[in-house]
Computed example of a mutant assay.
Amino acid sequence: MKAIYFILLTGVLHLSACAQQESAAERAPTTAGTGNEPLPAEVVKELNEQALGDTVVKTEAEWRKLLTPEQYYVLREEGTERAFKNEYNDNKKRGVYNCAACGNPMFTSQTKFDSGTGWPSFYAPISEKRVKEVEDRTMGMVRTEVECARCGSHIGHVFPDGPEPTGLRYCLNSAALKFVKK
């Protein structure tokens, strides 16, 4: 019986780990001090004004053919990848992070910062129309889930403990993103 409680506790701690992070004073944009310059203002403006495009609707069988098993688990089954063992947590390159399922541009390197959680974190999306926020009451917690506004795929969660200017921390799964270097 103790083993079952231990397994359940370990699972809850793993899933809630994204909610644990450093103080605001310890966070810094990941491009700081790396030699990377911010994206040009005209690129950010163009992405912000770009049309969202048609809603993407596919059957689960179509999604399974399109996505890797890990992407399907995260994007379609609302899973979470392992902290610190993902592709974009330490990415410091300049570019855009698109939805891995439909290509919707959602975040830029300009708003990415090191949250210390082990997942890529951003303080703002390119545009509020690019993401959808949904109340998530799973795992005995109340959180705000982040979905792709174009295809409805699970991207991660947003928390109110990020850096200025927004005070938000979009804690995302690398498997839900496709980085395009600019």
Score class of each variant (00 low, 15 high):
I7F: 14
L13S: 04
L13N: 06
S16R: 15
A19W: 12
Q20G: 03
S23I: 10
T31Y: 03
G33H: 01
E42A: 10
E42G: 05
V44C: 07
V44G: 06
E46F: 00
E46Y: 03
L47D: 00
L47Q: 00
Q50T: 04
A51C: 06
D54R: 07
D54S: 09
T55Y: 03
V57I: 14
V57M: 10
K58P: 13
E60N: 14
E62I: 04
L67R: 11
L67S: 10
T68K: 14
T68I: 11
P69N: 09
P69A: 07
Q71W: 03
Y72M: 10
E77I: 06
E78V: 02
R82I: 03
R82W: 04
D90E: 03
N91Y: 03
N91S: 02
K92F: 04
G95A: 07
G95M: 07
G95S: 08
C102K: 02
N104I: 01
P105N: 03
M106W: 01
M106V: 01
F107E: 00
T108V: 03
S109Y: 00
D114R: 10
G116L: 02
G118W: 08
Y123N: 14
A124M: 13
P125Y: 11
I126G: 00
S127F: 06
E128R: 04
R130H: 02
R130T: 01
E133C: 04
V134M: 05
D136K: 11
R137Q: 14
R137W: 11
T138N: 08
E147V: 08
E147I: 07
A149N: 03
S153L: 12
S153Q: 13
F159K: 09
P160S: 09
G162R: 15
P163W: 15
E164N: 11
L168S: 11
C171R: 15
L177A: 06
K178P: 07
F179N: 05
V180M: 10
V180I: 13
